[in-house]
């Protein structure tokens, strides 16, 4: 079942004197349960494509269909709600809120969704167990290691049960051990719970674990390989 589909997607930046086509007519689709990596050299359009897929940016032309709905036509207010209910984000710099505890960070989206306390507690407890940070619930991010912070970020992305997770360079700030542990957790969640992960990365360790690798160059898909592991 397709969770995302892009059709003739273009994103052109015209702020500078030179027009930059960051995404140059990409048509792609992702099905449920994929563990895909969008790879390529710096400036090839990985992050731009990920931002378009996540509705953080609007395409210059083309369409992005998620769950049968073209999100490129949504207003910015509708887009915020759509992101909250359908898409999970994991960022390179974790981006946890320092004044909130690990648990409060993880349940942040559920709070925005006004989910009842009991449901939030059950979900966070389940997730913290699944990603191996049980007992860290009441600790603030500054007292967690980079790997632990990124796990909390993954828990936050998963808490609202999104249709897919977009992760932009999630391992860039992690050491080898933390990277391996995080990837193990993500892969396990992908295999056992059929959660869809789409990465933008140039980290070979992530590429090695991906089931599908999409190579971009100058905003164009130059290679799309599945099940290379």
């Amino acid at each position: 079942m397709k969770v995302i589909e892009t059709k003739e997607l273009f994103k052109t930046y015209t702020e500078t004197e030179v027009e930059v086509k960051a995404v140059n007519g990409i048509s792609l689709s992702f099905t449920e349960g994929e563990f895909a990596a969008i790879v390529g050299p710096s400036g090839c359009g990985k992050t731009t494509l990920l931002n378009l897929l996540g509705g953080l940016d609007k395409p210059t032309s083309g369409s992005i269909i998620i769950d049968g709905k073209d999100i490129s036509s949504l207003s910015s207010r509708q887009m915020i709600d759509f992101r909250m209910n359908n898409i999970g984000f994991v960022f390179q710099a974790y981006n946890l809120i320092p004044v909130l505890t690990a648990k409060e960070n993880a349940e942040f989206i559920m709070n925005l969704q006004k989910k009842p306390k009991a449901e939030r507690e059950a979900r966070i407890s389940e997730l913290f167990k699944a990603i191996g940070i049980e007992g860290k619930e009441n600790i603030r991010p500054s007292r967690l290691s980079g790997g632990q912070q990124q796990r909390v970020a993954v828990a936050r992305a998963l808490a609202s049960k999104p249709k897919f997770i977009l992760a932009d360079e999630p391992t860039a700030n992690l050491d080898s051990k933390a990277t391996t542990e995080l990837l193990d957790i993500m892969r396990k969640l992908n295999e056992e719970e059929n959660i869809t992960f789409i990465f933008a990365t140039h980290d070979q360790r992530v590429i090695d674990r991906a089931k599908r690798i999409i190579n971009l160059d100058d905003g164009i898909v130059v290679k799309d390989e599945t099940e290379v592991v």
Binding site: I80, N95, F108, I109, R156
Partner: peptide, 16 residues
């Protein structure tokens, strides 16, 4: 900036 961008990205609307 980064944090505010993140909370808007994950679903906190502008009014909040």
């Amino acid at each position: 900036t980064k944090e505010l961008g993140m909370i808007m990205a994950i679903g906190m609307n502008r009014f909040k």
